[in-house]
Nucleic acid binder design. Sequence first.
DNA 1: TTGGCAAGTGGACCGTCGGTCCGCATAGTC
DNA 2: GACTATGCGGACCGACGGTCCACTTGCCAA
Lengths: 195, 195
Amino acid sequence: MTRPQRSDAARNRATVLAAADELFATAAAPAGLSMDDVAAAAGVGKGTLFRAFGSRAGLIQALWDLRTEPLGRAIENGPPPLGPGTDPRRRIAAILDAIVVVKLDNRYLTLAVEERSGGASLYEQPQYQLVHRLLSDLLRDAGRGKESELLAHVLLAAVRADLLDHLIGARGSSRRQLRAGVAAVADLVLNGSGG
Amino acid sequence: MTRPQRSDAARNRATVLAAADELFATAAAPAGLSMDDVAAAAGVGKGTLFRAFGSRAGLIQALWDLRTEPLGRAIENGPPPLGPGTDPRRRIAAILDAIVVVKLDNRYLTLAVEERSGGASLYEQPQYQLVHRLLSDLLRDAGRGKESELLAHVLLAAVRADLLDHLIGARGSSRRQLRAGVAAVADLVLNGSGG
DNA sequence: TTGGCAAGTGGACCGTCGGTCCGCATAGTC
DNA sequence: GACTATGCGGACCGACGGTCCACTTGCCAA
């Protein structure tokens, strides 16, 4: 089976994560961040980096997992409205809002996560599929019937990183406006005719 | 001012467009299509290719313009429901459906067009901005008020190439199902509460 | 027809990137 | 202290978008 990891490997992994986090927090554009940059910033060889994370996508995913882990737990078994136990409409709205907040707090990292690199699209990512499944179920509970799956995709498309980024950059939207806008869209989808 | 183009240049441009079109029609993945591939398929040097189209994005855009020009004209000054002169709700639905059809007919090309390459995102493309403006105005006419701009983005997000591609590939959706689904979403957004 | 030259051509070449390889260092163990 | 699996690091690789420039060719004027 898998043997325990050596201490220097664990230390390096943490160093790299910290350095990459810092870089993504300050970078102007995520696409311009090369693996050499990350390795240099972490004071580590490129081989080490790839040994620890497998690929560029793996590193980004690891960072993203770190940042979204609290939200994931809150949704899975936290208190309402994020956690289970509320009216599905309210929960959907809460989840979407929380997603927007996380994405705004990690703007460039989120852009990098959603960038299609290699053959893998956003829609193949386990996290996406998890949220999509959850939203689908909630929409079904809310009486959205057979369109639930598609509607879940549409709701998630409304909070895609590049769209948010565009709304901030080109339209100058504020955080408040974005959250309100997404809430309005969700409300329309949730409470429109047919519900 | 700009001098007329030499005849061999025009011929080569046409050759390249034809070859690239053929390649995109048969390619398994657009990202795997290199400029060298296109040049080789067209029987032309790479320099010629870049002289004619400026960049990879330029070539893809030229192809896309060719494919969408008829739809553009139909929307701008064709007969209803695509052209002006109908109920805005009906026109929005017609435009969205036409967009889905074009995207499905040019699946890999569309993926390539919407792939963020270089710094430019989908939202910076003139064509996107044109359609977005039109949809915004129509939504406003339909009484959608201040959320019109955001709603237009959301409607367009619902027909993004990678989403359609995912629905076809992973969920096995048929052309019919996709068109019906998008129509249902549009209906919800257009006729939901608040209109 | 011809001569001149701007426009166009093509492919060798470049810089960058993600990713691999492998000789060397070192942590963990007895 | 010795032995070994694990990890390290940076030279290296292949692919890609894009550039350069010596050569060719279409076009026009004489």
